[in-house]
Design a binder for these strands. Structure first.
Length: 461
RNA sequence: UCCCGAGUAGCUCAGCGGUAGAGCGGGCGGCUGUUAACCGCUAGGUCGCAGGUUCGAAUCCUGCCUCGGGAGCCA
């Protein structure tokens, strides 16, 4: 008999057939002559109830199963007389595939803290929380590809190793094959000529510059892959390794980009609402009772738009006591962003046109000479979920901005070439994938929406 | 990196100067259909590590480690 996934069994219209299920025991409840097993195989949040009685030749085995044991069970699917489930299986045969010694198996049939589960990250996928997280994460990743593919965007794989050491997005991890215990020294420093690539190389912090290269040939592209930041950030919103989605669109200005960002977020959140209702209900019940209503709100309402100048004005007149005072020219702090999106508007907010001094060199300078065509999408609880801009496509102005930022134009000769030959207006943004999963699930800590989170002093799994 | 807070049984925590506790989980027994089942019995701890104060330290002090919350950096 072929194995049937529990999700497929529970979706059936009627009982009656014999089925084979394979999975892990969540709990066992025993009376003298009958044992109830709850089996989960990860295909859905729900467990399948298996009823074993003395008609089973190895009933004693069934009666001794504990949480975490793996089993293969065949039997008839029947309507359940008990409350709590529609169907159950009356076991005709039961094979114990792997035991899980209850003296040492760390998962119990009760709630564990996420902090404890991080210490046993190899077993936490077996919990309801991490199973649901993995399914939501998978669905969001699929929705992201669908959104862009439906719009004719080309999926571009940006390199993970780069020789550009100043992409302006934070500290980078060095990539080297040099023997750190016996470094070749030249002029008092490590001799990179001896290194694998013959020059210093790093893990990428962004695929944006490479995406621009292809956008200026293929029009609409997106990257979706891992990026790395060696910042010593210890917060619930930062990882040293995280996935980023970076669309780059040619013949597009800032207004078109904000529309794309809004359509994009609405699409992926609508998609996850439609395809993961049970998992979202789980998060709504146990982690954040406003998750579903927030996602529904985003899907159905338009995002607020305001300029940085307007945002500063709102903050200054809010009467709120901020730890950091607000004035034009400084970047918005977390508390300011959250005030805007959570209290003042109550919905996602797109803030545009920031002072050029606080933004990257490649963002397009506006006619006022003071602001750049940048945008941040702010959402409740997370703050900044998307950051993007229209890119500076005018070579002379780009050169001037690079000099102001203290960058060596020699290192960006190819980036400048794109402006020398057939330059066009273009724009793009970056979306932190884990922050998106965090937002969609209500999980408070980003370490719990990554299968294997990397943070300072932690790469154990 | 900075500011707070916490580390006591497998897990979640109480105890906060007088010599170690509970619930859950585990083991054993009971129970004819349970829903994180229920009932009874039971085992289980260098109280994060290292110093110090004290007649006496889980409890007070110092340092370190780990974890968490907030901030900065950002996605």
């Amino acid at each position: 008999m072929l194995r049937t996934k529990i999700r497929e069994i529970l979706d059936r219209d009627s009982a009656g057939d014999d089925v084979l299920v394979q999975g892990w025991v969540k709990t066992r409840r025993s009376s003298r002559n009958v044992t109830f097993l709850q089996i989960n195989d990860g295909s859905t949040l729900k467990d399948l109830q298996v009823v074993a009685d003395e008609s089973l030749s190895n009933f004693a085995d069934a009666d001794s199963l504990t949480t975490g044991c793996s089993v293969s069970i065949s039997g008839q699917l029947v309507d359940s007389p008990g409350k709590g489930q529609r169907f159950e299986i009356h076991a005709k045969s039961l094979e114990v595939m792997g035991l899980a010694d209850p003296d040492t198996y760390p998962l119990q049939k009760k709630r564990h803290t996420v902090e404890f589960l991080r210490e046993i990250a190899h077993l936490r996928p077996r919990t309801n929380t991490f199973g649901a997280m993995a399914r939501v994460r998978n669905t969001l990743a699929f929705a992201i590809h669908r959104f862009f593919q439906e719009r004719g965007f080309l999926f571009l794989q940006a390199p993970m190793i780069t020789a550009s050491d100043a992409e302006g997005a934070g500290a980078m991890f060095r990539v080297t094959t040099l023997d750190l215990d016996q470094l070749p020294i030249k002029n008092g420093a490590a001799d990179s000529a001896e290194d694998f690539f013959g020059e210093p190389t790093f893990l990428t912090v962004s695929g944006q510059l490479e995406a621009e290269i292809f956008a200026l040939a293929l029009s609409d592209v997106y990257t979706f892959g891992p990026t790395f930041r060696a910042e010593n950030s210890n917060t619930s919103r930062h990882l040293a390794e995280f996935w980023m989605v970076e669309p780059e669109v040619a013949f597009c200005e800032l207004d078109g980009l904000t529309e794309l960002a809004e359509d994009f977020l609405k699409y992926i959140f609508t998609y996850v609402l439609d395809h993961c209702p049970e998992d979202l209900a789980f998060f709504n019940q146990w982690y954040d009772e406003s998750v579903i209503s927030t996602l529904e709100g985003i899907a159905s309402s338009s995002f607020e738009r305001m300029t940085y100048t307007e945002a500063v004005d709102i903050l200054q007149r809010s009467g709120e006591k901020f730890e950091f005072p607000v004035h034009w020219g400084t970047d918005l702090q977390s508390e300011h962003e959250r005030y805007l999106t959570e209290k003042h508007i109550g919905r996602p907010v797109i803030v545009t046109d920031y002072p050029k001094e606080i933004k990257a060199f490649y963002m397009r300078l506006s006619d006022d000479g003071k602001t750049v065509r940048a945008m941040d999408v702010l959402v409740p609880r997370i703050g900044e979920i998307i950051g993007g801009s229209q890119r500076e496509e005018r070579k002379d102005i780009l050169l001037e901005r690079m000099r102001e930022s203290g960058l060596d134009e020699q290192n960006y000769w190819w980036y400048l070439d794109l402006r020398s030959y057939g330059t066009v207006p273009h724009a793009g943004f970056g979306l932190g994938f884990e922050r998106t999963v965090q937002f969609a699930t209500g999980m408070p800590n980003i370490r719990d929406v990554s299968p294997f989170p990397r943070t300072p002093k932690s790469a154990g799994f």
